[in-house]
């Protein structure tokens, strides 16, 4: 039987590798949105590889989160650093899901104009950055050192909002998702 700690190592490596790959691809797309690296072939490769990588990373993310919670000392999320990891990884997962859905719903037209391209590429970059940030905090938690130590960030502070505001944000966010999804579907059905 594999232990939670070992499983966490495996899943985080899958997540980090995939999101790092996606980050490179979305960086290329972001540069192309500002008229750098204009190669059409590179654009296609970055588009396909970026979305595949972020999708694969997203599949591995729930396993990484669950095994991380299981392998951490104590029960549940028991330290400010773990709470911040939880927030960052879920924020990254939200961004990654939106990137994937937009690509699925809109198709390649997601790159059809500058604003849409910037939205898509920066959302992908944000997802990758936040996920790599989360992984870096894992090193801080287990080894008390991380690549981000140079920034001297405090992870002992938690931004915790009141419970009722959380519920309101959740409802508003879900409503926004539903409206946006319906809007995208309606706009697309006009074409056919």
């Amino acid at each position: 039987m594999i232990s939670a700690a070992t499983f966490h190592v495996i899943t985080t490596e899958l997540v980090v590798g995939s999101f790092a790959m996606a980050g490179v691809c979305f960086l290329i797309k972001a540069l192309q949105a500002f008229d750098f690296l204009g190669s059409q072939q590179l654009s296609q490769v970055a588009d396909n590889a970026g979305h595949f990588a972020i999708g694969f990373g997203l599949l591995a993310t729930p396993f990484a989160i669950m095994s991380g919670i299981s392998s951490s000392p104590g029960t549940g999320v028991s330290s400010p650093l773990l709470v911040n990891k939880m927030f960052l990884s879920m924020a990254a997962a939200g961004l990654a899901l939106s990137v994937l859905y937009a690509r699925y719903a809109v198709g390649k037209r997601v790159w059809a104009n500058k604003k849409s391209s910037i939205t898509q590429s920066f959302a992908g970059l944000g997802a990758s950055g936040l996920m790599l940030f989360t992984a870096s905090l894992g090193g801080k938690f287990s080894r008390n050192e991380s690549l981000l130590d140079v920034f001297n960030l405090s992870f002992e502070t938690i931004l915790l909002i009141p419970f009722w505001i959380t519920i309101v944000v959740l409802i508003v966010a879900l409503a926004a998702i539903v409206l946006a999804v319906l809007g995208l579907r309606n706009d697309l059905t006009i074409q056919h």
Binding site: G94, I167, V169, L170, A173, L174
Partner: peptide, 8 residues
């Protein structure tokens, strides 16, 4: 909520 907010 944070994930849903960013997705929305």
């Amino acid at each position: 909520a944070l994930g849903c907010f960013l997705m929305g």
